[in-house]
Amino acid sequence: MKKLIAVFGLALLLPVAASAVEPDEILADPALEARARGISRQLRCVVCQNQDIDSSNAGVARDLRLLVRERLEAGDTDEQVIAFVTARYGDFVLLKPPFKPETYVLWFAPPALALLALAAGAAVVAGNRKRRRQAALDPEDDARVARIIEDYKREPQS
């Protein structure tokens, strides 16, 4: 059973593994190739936007894949390769936007909005509770209500 689940899980992963890397692009050094694949998955294809260059068949994507491998073979670190591409195509090519003053709104807006929503929710709930407490009867009315209930219990209606 466990094996079956494992096989099923692997089968689900298969389509994800599909990529546009052609055999002639692949580097002889598996370690370098793995790094190239990792970098490619972080870079956006500028033609078919929202696809990384690793899975895009566009001509420019192929050129960029070759460029990434060329830089790696020249001895660049991953960061240097990404900086090289960013210098030519801008932050837009990064699928994960960088963290810097221009993108603070992007990074901080979701948690800030979530906090705002929580605060608003808490305020509404607190307001409701307060109103309910204020709506409570005074002791005199409470006593009357208790008496009525007692009377009702003593002589139940048929």
């Binding site: 500028v46 033609v47 001509g59 420019v60 030519r88 195509y89």
Partner: peptide, 11 residues
């Protein structure tokens, strides 16, 4: 297409 990359063209 290498010069094209230097110029940052997309097509």
């Amino acid at each position: 297409g290498r010069a094209g990359i230097e110029w940052g063209i997309s097509g």
